[in-house]
Simulated scan of single mutants.
Amino acid sequence: MKNFIMTLISTLIAFSCAVNVSQKDIPYTSAKKYFVKNISDQKDLTEKIITSQEEFDQIFGPATTMGRSGKPTPIDFSKENVLALIYPKTNLEVEIIPVSLQQKGQNIVYSYKVIKGGQRSFMTIPNTIVIIQKLDSKKIIFQKVQK
């Protein structure tokens, strides 16, 4: 009986000392109607944190179409930042999908997955842009999730 009580107490102590990292979902908006300017010859998926309109305009251009829903998603860089994922130029069908954006301790973790499909008859630069509120000195970690 004494051994049972000692085992129980040591188990409780071990579990109470475990580090509990809190997780909190962070809201984001997917930006639509932008294209990657044909200015880079990148070879790998690029992960970018964009904090100014000037930096954004160097990489992306508006892909405006007619009609009310044809305008690009507005971004206010005084209050918002952009997390961008840019795939190299390819003739494959590629979809970059945001999975989650969470605060884990002092870090922000942006999880995403890349799905590759069949060949196309044209080249594109697949990308995904999400808009987040400016965060107080949190480190943003990009995490590719395997299917």
Rank of each mutant, 00 (worst) to 15 (best):
S100C: 07
A18Q: 13
I9Q: 03
S22K: 14
S100R: 06
K104S: 06
Q119L: 13
M1I: 10
Y28K: 05
Q53K: 14
I140N: 03
V114C: 06
Q102C: 03
S10R: 10
S137M: 10
N3F: 09
I5E: 08
V19M: 07
S40Y: 13
K139I: 11
P88G: 05
F35W: 10
S100Q: 07
Q133L: 07
I141M: 04
K134F: 05
Q23F: 08
V145M: 13
S137F: 07
Q103K: 14
L12P: 04
E95N: 13
R68H: 09
G70D: 07
D41N: 15
E80D: 11
K33M: 12
L45A: 11
F35V: 12
F56H: 01
K138Y: 09
P74E: 10
K116H: 05
I97H: 01
K147S: 13
V94N: 03
S52D: 09
Q146S: 14
V99R: 09
L92E: 13
Q102I: 04
N107A: 08
M1D: 10
I140D: 01
S78H: 05
I132S: 02
K48R: 15
K147V: 10
F15I: 15
L83T: 00
F122M: 07
F60Y: 09
K144M: 11
C17E: 02
I26C: 03
P27C: 04
G105Q: 05
K48T: 12
A31I: 05
D136F: 05
V114P: 03
Q103V: 01
L85I: 12
K2E: 13
N3I: 06
I39S: 14
I131C: 01
E54P: 03
V109C: 06
F56A: 04
A63E: 12
L135W: 02
S40T: 14
I9Y: 03
P88I: 07
Q42I: 15
I141R: 03
K32S: 14
P74M: 06
T46E: 14
S69T: 14
I131V: 15
Q133M: 08
A31Y: 01
F77L: 08
I108Y: 00
R120A: 04
R68K: 15
K147P: 07
K144R: 15
A63H: 11
N91W: 05
N127L: 00
A14Y: 10
G117K: 09
I26R: 00
D136R: 11
P88D: 06
K139E: 12
E54H: 11
P88A: 07
D25G: 01
S137I: 06
N81R: 08
Q42A: 14
K2P: 01
M6S: 14
K33C: 10
K113N: 09
V109F: 00
Y112R: 02
K147I: 08
N107I: 01
N81L: 11
N107V: 02
P88V: 06
K89S: 10
V19F: 06
K48G: 04
